[in-house]
Design a binder for these strands. Structure first.
Lengths: 255, 255
DNA sequence: GATCAATTGATCATATTTGTTCGATAGTGA
DNA sequence: TCACTATCGAACAAATATGATCAATTGATC
């Protein structure tokens, strides 16, 4: 086996495994460990991999789950812009459901200024803002999901059934041009679905970074939403698809 | 496991949990504590986390209860003492209702460490602590009362009807030797009553300053409570009355 | 077949990583 | 305030991984 072949093979293996030990590779190629180390050094010098003591890691090795707050901080500006645009779409009186998540929290933060409004939410951070609110704020009950500080679960759903909203604003963890909006957890998806099912106006608010992010549970296909508020004009194909499905796109800062 | 992997994993965990102790991490990775500390130091030097004595915090973690803390500064010491005493009266597993209010919040703050417990509460500040909780936390639904950040109202009551608690801890705004415990709002009183009605063990926790404070709505006469936890031994007459009604008195710091 | 360059493997001194011990320090409750 | 406990980090020790060096092997070329 030629060196180049081995180098290429190691790269390929790393695509599949994200981490490889020197021992594994030595066995795999039936070569000595020192040979593997030499290969790894070459690959590292070429910037193809990251070496670790005992093996190697994929270069863009990213941690298991992207995480919640991490993204939240660097997109504050964008999310504020989305929020400013989103509230223009929302009624000044009546009942509005506001979802959990950082984008929706920004929207909620602005909506609580409207004194004729009743805001129903599953977001604990939003409930915590009630002290400064002019609007009436109602929390749906349920079990707390610690990662997102959202109220979820069966009882929350039962309770939402009894409600009728003038509008529902929901967020998403992933967007897919072909399918629709996704989230990572079934229990959260159910709450979002139920809220939308009982709302006259359904608004999806999501930061552009959510496009093509993998998230396992479908909240709803595009057609179920009336408006999609985001911060960057979607790719041509995605935009066309949305319009075909009857979703009005609002791009923050541009209208 | 490579160092880089552990560092990445710690970052990911921190995004989900806000805070991690060295011990937790050591167990999680099956590594020694000193190894974890070394990792934490690396992450701190890289500006990825904030270290604390005993563990680490997420870099931009902000306290989730804004606008409420200022109230809580009154009698912190005494309330902490009451809380320490109260939790000794409470089971380590099962379902416990924890009321809104600063005293009960102190109790809840300690109870969330018990990992076999389900805590049901109408206190939004307590719900906001779920991110750091070992216990399962359930919020009852309802309208938010901004002054107290408590969930109240008809829906809250309906929720409570569905529950059965091993214990209920409630607070009060006023205490009267002759009558019992009072609060300022009918809606809050109803929640407290309903919680007690569905609990095996009923604990009233209140700071001594609440004696003879005027508060309009009777929560319940003394006889409805099993224990009264406070920070100062009650006046002779009051103490006698309580005992006659079958309420066990626990004075914080003295037992 | 002899020679050379390239690659690989073996050996061993050195690096790195991890865990243990123990004195120092910070937090906690009285 | 003090004493008590938990946590911390320095220093050492053990285990493991690493790379420099040198020898062996292979294949190409003369």
């Amino acid at each position: 086996m030629f060196v180049q072949e081995r180098l290429g093979a190691i790269e390929t293996l790393l695509q599949q495994k994200h981490r490889l030990t020197v021992g594994e590779l030595a066995r795999h190629f039936d070569a000595s460990e020192i040979t593997i180390r030499r290969d790894l050094r070459l690959l590292e010098e070429a910037g193809k991999i990251v070496r670790a003591h005992g093996g190697a890691l994929r270069i863009n090795y990213q941690r298991p789950e992207p995480g919640f707050e991490h993204k939240a901080v660097d997109a504050v500006e964008a999310k504020a812009a989305i929020a400013r645009t989103a509230i223009e779409e929302l009624p000044v009186r009546g009942h509005i459901f506001v979802d959990s998540g950082t984008t929706c929290l920004e929207i909620g933060r602005r909506l609580i200024e409207r004194n004729e409004l009743t805001i129903v939410t599953n977001s604990i951070p939003l409930l915590a803002l009630a002290g400064e609110a002019k609007a009436r704020i109602v929390g749906i009950g349920g079990e707390v999901r610690p990662v997102s500080l959202a109220l979820v679960g069966g009882v929350a759903l039962d309770w939402l059934k009894a409600f009728h909203f003038d509008a529902a604003v929901v967020g998403a963890s992933g967007l897919d041009g072909a399918d629709g909006a996704f989230t990572t957890e079934l229990s959260e998806a159910s709450v979002k679905q139920m809220a939308c099912a009982h709302a006259k106006l359904r608004i999806l608010a999501a930061h552009a970074s959510k496009w093509n992010q993998p998230a396992s549970v479908l909240i709803a296909p595009w057609g179920r939403f009336d408006r999609f508020v985001t911060d960057v004009r979607p790719a041509k194909a995605d935009g066309a698809r949305l319009r075909r499905e009857g979703v009005a796109i609002r791009v923050a800062g541009l209208r």
